[in-house]
Design a protein around this nucleic acid. Structure first.
Length: 252
DNA sequence: CCATTAAGAGTGT
DNA sequence: ACACTCTTAATGG
């Protein structure tokens, strides 16, 4: 371990080769690095890749901390949040493997505007800001993919502004349920990702109590199934129908 | 394995 | 938002 890199271990040449091939063999098709693995100049970046293991509940990006690099989620599930005034968390988005985390701090920003917390054990790929910038200048196809990613993120965030400002609590809770379902899917009739009612509220922009009450209403209406922390959608068509006039484009 | 305890889910005010 | 009860999961002997 070296000074200043106490949470990131230093790698030997041999380990570098392993990591190199790890990137090449990575099954993560959503990863922009992996997508451009055959373009020139990317080798240096891939070699400098650091793998970071993150335990459940661990925070790996702190809001306000100075930006050192970007993270790519290799495996696991992450919540990205912004802390509001009275310590209230606003979950900005959830991340699945292949997604970039910390990208808003990239470029001219000096500090991360968000925090990122692992929801389950995670593996992250880390690249330093400097090297990534250098690679982007030399690699148009990667830069283009990044641009598409940023454009898409901006679009998503604008949709979200509309959701939070124009939807009722009921609609926002339903929107949240559909989002979690789209993103993580269901196994055995329940969402694959376990979230507390508080976390549903933090995404939907409500309080825990409102979410709990809305869940029991939806349950009575036969739209939702709950069993402890487990949440399942029992009638997706009806749920989608309720918010269809808000985001008619979003059906997939 | 059971008992204790802590955390989170529900509900009424 | 707060206070309270109930349920479930975690801990430890």
């Amino acid at each position: 371990m070296r000074e200043g890199t106490n949470h990131i271990s230093t790698y030997t040449e041999q380990q570098d080769k392993l990591l190199d091939s790890a990137c090449g063999n990575c099954t993560n098709q959503n990863c922009l690095i992996q997508k451009n693995i055959n373009t020139p100049n990317i080798g240096k970046l891939v070699k400098a890749r650091k793998e970071i293991k993150c335990k459940k509940g661990q925070q790996f990006i702190m809001e306000g901390a100075s930006v050192t690099g970007l993270f790519f989620l290799l495996s696991g599930k992450v919540k990205v949040l912004r802390t509001g005034l009275h310590g209230k968390e606003q979950i900005v988005r959830f991340a699945t493997p292949g997604e970039i985390i910390g990208h808003r701090g990239f470029g001219t920003e000096e500090t991360y505007p968000i925090s990122a917390i692992a929801l389950v054990d995670c593996t992250l790929c880390y690249f330093s800001k400097e090297l990534l910038q250098e690679t982007l200048r030399e690699t148009p196809s990667l830069t283009y993919d990044f641009m598409l990613f940023y454009a898409n993120e901006l679009n998503r965030s604008e949709i979200r502004v509309k959701s939070l400002s124009q939807m009722t609590v009921r609609e926002r809770v339903i929107d949240t349920l559909l989002y979690i379902n789209r993103k993580f899917g269901q196994t055995n009739g329940y969402f694959s990702l376990l979230l507390s009612r508080r976390e549903y509220a933090d995404y939907a922009g409500t309080t825990e109590e409102q979410v709990i009450r809305m869940f029991s209403i939806l349950k009575k209406e036969g739209l939702l199934t709950t069993k402890g922390k487990r949440i399942g959608i029992s009638n997706i068509t009806l749920l989608k129908k309720e918010i269809s006039e808000h985001n008619f484009y979003l059906d997939s």
